[in-house]
């Protein structure tokens, strides 16, 4: 009986994110009289969620380990501004491609080394990095408000590229997360740090690779963000990590990580966030009320998931 109830709770938890997505689709489908399903709007929803999906895939290992990278948006901003600034100075577009890739990977390595070799809370670590980078790129911008992204990179903002990037990153992440020791150990680390250390897993390597993977995906997100905005300014990547965090949580990713972490949360959560924002504008909801509604939904989802988890553990 007890086992049956426990299984029921797990099913509810697993189905919750899917039900939430279906509820949002059904609600806006009915209230907008199908306008939400127009071809243009579907493309809009995809283009608004794809960057967060790719970024969320990159961060999913760290989330499964119970951590989160607060510096993600600042890395995007810094990498974009540095690359386009060098292009502006040298009139060579290649810097706008190479610098973001190298810088994001380098930041992945730096963050990975700190994460692997110190006991600093990853939240505090990445927040410090974020302050550092924001200060640097504001100084670096100097008397320039923004730098233009060279036209050779604009194709990365187009839909076909976004679809390709999502498929490639999605397939790689799903494989790594579900079918390799890297993914399995990440989830186990989130469940019990001591247990995985005692089982002989090279935790330092695991933690280092988590950030390297995230850095590699961040490079792609940076290039796509630059191409979409057409310029690098202080707004590039701003609050990106918080949007991903909200999406992952709404998608059902446990905030403490662990074996309950699922890649599907990334896709579902990003779609819910995009649909909520899009649907409310389509309905003509006042912009300020939109923020209130999003906040209330976020809190309700968190309470609901916590209650389910508590019930599941109590059984």
């Amino acid at each position: 009986m007890k086992e049956k109830k426990q299984i029921n709770m797990k099913i509810i938890l697993n189905l919750f994110s899917w039900l939430s997505l279906l509820l949002v689709i059904a609600l806006f489908g009915v209230t907008t009289k199908g306008a939400i399903f127009s071809s243009y709007n579907m493309k809009v929803i995809f283009s608004q969620s794809v960057l967060f999906m790719i970024g969320g895939l990159g961060l999913s290992f760290l989330f499964a380990e119970g951590g989160f990278d607060i510096s993600y948006g600042s890395v995007i901003g810094f990498a974009g501004i540095l690359g386009t600034m060098l292009t502006d100075r040298t009139q060579n577009w290649i810097w706008s491609l190479i610098v973001p890739v190298v810088f994001c990977l380098a930041m992945g390595v730096v963050n990975g080394l700190i994460y692997a070799h110190t006991n600093i809370m990853v939240f505090i670590q990445t927040m410090s990095i974020s302050f550092l980078l924001k200060g640097l790129f504001t100084t670096m911008l100097g008397s320039y408000g923004s730098y233009k992204v060279p036209k050779q990179l604009i194709f990365m903002g187009q839909t076909w590229f976004a679809v390709t990037a999502l498929i490639v990153v999605g397939v790689i992440t799903i494989w790594l997360f579900n079918y390799t020791p890297f993914g399995k150990h990440s989830r186990l680390y989130g469940t019990g740090k001591d247990a995985i250390v005692q089982s002989g897993v090279d935790v330092r390597r695991l933690k280092f690779l988590t950030f390297v993977f995230s850095g590699a995906v961040c490079a792609l997100v940076t290039l796509m963000s630059m191409a979409r905005a057409g310029q690098s300014s202080t707004g590039l990547g701003s609050n990106f990590e918080f949007n991903v965090m909200i999406a992952l949580t709404l998608g059902g990713m446990p905030s403490e990580g662990g074996t309950g972490s699922k890649i599907q949360s990334v896709f579902i959560g990003c779609l819910i966030v995009a649909l909520l924002a899009n649907g409310m504008v389509l309905l003509g909801v006042n912009a300020r009320l939109q923020e209130v509604i999003k906040g209330v939904i976020f809190i309700l989802v968190l309470i609901f998931m916590l209650k389910i988890k508590e019930k599941s553990e109590a059984l």
Binding site: Q48, A229, G235, S238, N239, V281, A287, Q290
Partner: peptide
């Protein structure tokens, strides 16, 4: 529409 964070995205 809302864009209170005023990021590019």
């Amino acid at each position: 529409a809302t864009a209170s964070e005023m990021s590019a995205e």
